[in-house]
Design a protein around this nucleic acid. Structure first.
Length: 316
DNA sequence: GGGCGCACCTGTAAGC
DNA sequence: TGCTTACAGGTGCGCC
């Protein structure tokens, strides 16, 4: 389940292979992997996330995506939270627009895999891209996604404050805590101004991006905060500590190559990360808390699960 | 505007 | 053995 550390590992893995590479060909094998892609001249959001693509809409999107990406040169990949994008170098044809990026969201099971051009396919590859790099020669970049929650798109870049630019579809999300321009004070104020539970707030990408179910549970465990503690009940000091622990968890996960369960997440070479071995709460329902020995509790949380220690993380 | 629930999707495991 | 059901979960949309 790719969250910030996993997406960052993918970004760093892609960088040397795609920066400066030219797209030779694109094949969309499953248009459902283009849910976020809007063809030129079409209104954004038609047939988008949450609705099923008609066959005709899917074919149109696939054709538009293939036509506009083929022949373009890729630049260095960038990331905010769980969104990853590769800006396209300015071309003179004007097919993709002057400030366009190849945007990727991995969803739950999406993978960006760098492979030899003659590598064997797996059945979950949804979009194949052949690229040619001046130093590395021809490669294949496969977007594989078992559960189809992820997608690729071509999207226009929009300026973002105080520096840089971002695909329009990701413009609404906050910076992530590893971003040097992250607003610490804004985070603390946002947490303390809301009445909903701390876990919901950590998962709100408009407050802080990059956090998913795994790292929310781990951060709350480290900070000794109950997932349902209202944001307004978190002290100034507590909110600062929450941010500190979030950064700590992300840093450690990055060092260990991310969290892999059941091959749901691998890096660009298909290798798993090791952070799953370092988890203290997530996925450990019924096991002893590493801090106090009390059994970790697993409770339903909006269609998924929360894991916490009922002793270390008491509800206030 | 905030909060909540649902839809999207597929592989796996459990239950019958 | 084979079928059905539940579950995993990030995002966006609609409703209250």
């Amino acid at each position: 389940m790719p969250e910030l550390p996993e997406v960052e590992v993918v970004r760093a893995g892609l960088a040397p292979a795609v920066t400066g590479a030219r797209v030779l060909a694109v094949e969309v094998m499953d248009p459902r992997a283009l849910k976020r892609h809007t063809p030129l001249g079409e209104e954004p959001g038609l047939g988008g996330h949450g609705s099923t693509l008609s066959e005709e809409t899917g074919r149109g999107r696939a054709a538009d995506f293939e036509r506009r990406l083929t022949g373009r040169t890729l630049t260095a990949p960038l990331r905010r939270g769980k969104f990853l994008w590769i800006p396209l170098a300015v071309d003179t044809g004007g097919l993709a627009g002057p400030d366009t990026a190849l945007l990727a969201h991995l969803g739950m099971s999406g993978q960006m895999l760098l492979r030899a051009t003659d590598a064997v396919d797996d059945r979950h590859v949804r979009i194949r891209t052949w690229i040619e790099h001046p130093d590395h020669g021809e490669l294949r970049l496969d977007f594989s996604d078992q559960r189809l929650f992820g997608s690729l798109a071509l999207d226009s870049l929009t300026p973002t404050s105080p520096v840089g630019s971002i695909p329009a579809q990701a413009a609404h999300i906050a910076r992530d805590p590893l971003d040097p321009h992250f607003d610490d004070a804004g985070f603390v104020a946002a947490i303390r101004s809301r009445s909903v539970g701390a876990k919901k707030l950590l998962l709100d990408q408009r407050i802080v991006s990059g956090v998913g179910n795994i790292y929310a549970d781990e951060t709350l465990w480290r900070a000794r905060v109950h997932p349902d503690t209202p944001g307004s009940a978190v002290s100034q000091r507590g909110a600062v500590a929450l941010l500190h622990h979030l950064r700590e968890v992300f840093d450690q996960a990055l060092l260990e190559g991310g969290t892999s369960f059941d091959e749901q997440y691998v890096n660009v070479n298909g290798q798993a990360g090791y952070f799953a071995h370092s988890l203290n709460a997530y996925g450990r329902g019924g096991e002893a808390c590493p801090r106090c020995g009390t059994a970790i509790k697993r409770v339903p949380f909006g269609g998924r699960s929360s894991h916490y220690c009922p002793r270390c993380q008491r509800k206030r």
